[in-house]
Amino acid sequence: MFPSRGDRLLLPGLRTAALLTGGVVVLLLAFLIVEAWPGLRAVGLTRFFTDPSWHPAGEEGTFNLAPMLVGTLAAAAGALAFSSPLALGSALFCHYFAGQAQATLYRRLIEVLAGVPSVVYGFWGLVVLVPLIRRLEPPGASLFAGILVLTIMILPTLMLSADAAFAAIPEDYFKAAAALGLSRPAVIAHVVLPASRGGLATGLMLSTGRAVGETMAVLMVCGNVVQTPDSLFDPIRTLTANIALEMAYALGDHRAALFVSGLVLMGLVIALVLAAATVVREPA
C-alpha cells in the first residue's frame, strides 16, 4: 500500500508551517539586532549605562538607560511585593476556606480582571488613582501609581497559577495530615506550600515578565520623567514607556538606542522564561 498523494504532501506542509512559526522569534531577534547594531557600534554598550543622562536626539546625544532600567525593576518589584500576598491569600481562600460556590464566583471575578486590557487599567489609574495620590503627595503620577496599577494587573496571573498549583496537590496529603490532627495553618505552611513550590515559582516568574514588559499602564500613570527615583512618589519612566514615547520621532542613533532597550527587555524576559522552564523541570 502506498500513501495517498494527500499524505505525501501533508507532513512536509505541516513541518514547513512549524518551521515558520518557530522562525518568528528568530526573525524578531534578528531585526532587533540589525536595528540596534548601528547604535551599539556608534555609542558602545558601556555608554548605555555610564552616560551622564538620556538626551538621545541631536549630534552629541547621551544614552544612559540605567535610570529607566531601575524604574522598570522598581515598579516590577513593588508590584510583586504587593500582589504576591493578595494572590496567595486568594488562592488559599479558594481551596481551603471558601465553599464550592464562593470559590467559583471568586475565580470568575479574577478571570474578569485577567480580561481587562492594560490600556483600561492605565486609564483607570490615570483618572482615579493618580489624583488620589496627588492629594497624598504631589505630583501623583509616580512610581507608586505604577506599582498599584501593576499590582492589580499581575494579580490574576499570580493567583491562577497558585490556584493550579494547589489543585495539583494529591488528596492523600490532606487525609494523612487530618489523621495526624494537623491544624489548617500547619497543613498550609508545611504541606501545601512546600508541595506547590514549583508552581508558585513559575507563576512568580511569569508575572515578573508581565510586569517588566508592561507598557501602556505604566506609561499612563508613572509620569515619565527620566530619573532614578528617591522615593515611591517620584515620577519615573520605564524602558517600555520610553520606547512608546519616543519611537514616533526617533531617528538614527536615537532609534537604534530604542532598539537596544528593546533587546535589554528581551534579555530580561528570556532569562525569566528559561528560569521558569528550569523550575518546572525540577521535581517538586
Partner: peptide
C-alpha cells in the same frame, strides 16, 4: 493514629 492504603509521606 491512622495509616492509609497508599503510603502518604509529605513532600518533606
Amino acid at each position: 493514629g491512622m495509616i492509609f492504603q497508599r503510603p502518604s509521606p509529605f513532600p518533606l
